[in-house]
Simulated assay, not measured.
Amino acid sequence: MSRVILFHKPFGVLSQFTDEGSGHPTLAEYIDVPGVYAAGRLDRDSEGLLVLTDDGRLQHRIAHPKSKQPKTYWVQVERVPDEAALEALRRGVTLKDGRTRPAKVKRIDAPSPLFPRDPPVRFRKSVPDSWLEMVITEGKNRQVRRMTAHVGHPTLRLIRAQVGEWHLGGLRPGEWRDA
């Protein structure tokens, strides 16, 4: 039987077990389970759910774009997007590496619980921010960040809340549990 681990990856942690000389913290500092590997990845400056497994086929199914596995993100962006910006994201936008699939997007209140981030997101009195929930079914490099920037609302904080059927639940940053 395959093992599936759900991990709340903190900001600044690499989605791999070795740092290859980068000096950044890795999964090895949080998870001491032999034979499991991340199914997909989260950038160092993103946080939230990372699914790990010892099943190569499951890992491929989760990570491969052809599987169209839905991934839900909570996205803090600069300013409050209007309906036109949200609709552009819902239709899909054209980035340098091609058009994105349509995203499901809605404005949300700040997620709860929202754990502090180290370092904290920059705060600017003159520029409000807001939260979106985005569901995408592909995983181009830094896709959510590039999509929000494309419609004029740069991402300030990005938290993956769900991958397919798995969700963060009550996991705090740095905690993991078996699925």
Rank of each mutant, 00 (worst) to 15 (best):
A85N: 07
D55I: 00
K140E: 01
K9R: 09
D178N: 09
H24L: 15
I31E: 08
P65C: 14
R145T: 03
S2Q: 10
A38P: 13
S46L: 00
L156A: 07
D129H: 11
D45C: 01
T72R: 15
F17S: 09
R142M: 03
A38R: 02
D19R: 00
H64R: 07
I108P: 02
M147F: 02
P34E: 03
R177S: 14
W131H: 07
L50P: 13
L114W: 11
V13S: 00
R57H: 14
N141K: 14
D97L: 00
P154Q: 04
S126H: 12
V127K: 13
R79C: 11
W176A: 13
E133T: 09
D129I: 06
G170I: 06
W176R: 11
A85T: 04
D82G: 15
H167N: 15
L86K: 04
V80G: 11
V93T: 03
E20L: 07
T148E: 10
N141L: 14
V77W: 07
S67W: 12
E87D: 15
Y73G: 05
P116R: 02
A161N: 13
K96I: 08
F11A: 00
M134D: 09
Y30C: 07
V13A: 01
H24V: 06
V4S: 04
R145C: 03
D19V: 00
D118W: 03
K68P: 11
V144F: 10
H60T: 12
H167W: 10
P116M: 01
S15G: 03
H153N: 10
L49R: 15
E20Y: 05
E20A: 09
E78I: 08
S2H: 12
R90T: 08
Q16F: 06
R157Y: 03
H150R: 04
L14V: 01
L14N: 03
K9Q: 04
A63N: 06
I5G: 11
Q76D: 06
V121S: 04
E138T: 10
L49I: 15
I31G: 09
R157S: 02
P25D: 00
P111W: 02
E138V: 05
V144D: 10
D55K: 01
L42S: 02
V36Y: 01
W74R: 12
P65Q: 10
L168F: 13
A149T: 09
G164V: 03
R145Y: 02
K68Y: 14
P34A: 03
D178C: 08
V105T: 06
V144P: 13
L49F: 09
G98N: 05
L156E: 07
R99Q: 14
L52D: 11
A28M: 06
V135G: 11
T53E: 02
R117L: 01
I5M: 11
K96L: 10
R122N: 08
A161H: 14
A28P: 02
R99H: 12
F17P: 14
P111R: 04
P70Y: 15
S46V: 00
A88I: 04
R44L: 00
D118F: 06
S112G: 06
Q16C: 08
S15E: 01
G92Q: 04
R107Y: 05
H60N: 15
R172P: 02
K125T: 09
R157V: 02
P70H: 13
A161G: 14
Q143G: 06
T155H: 08
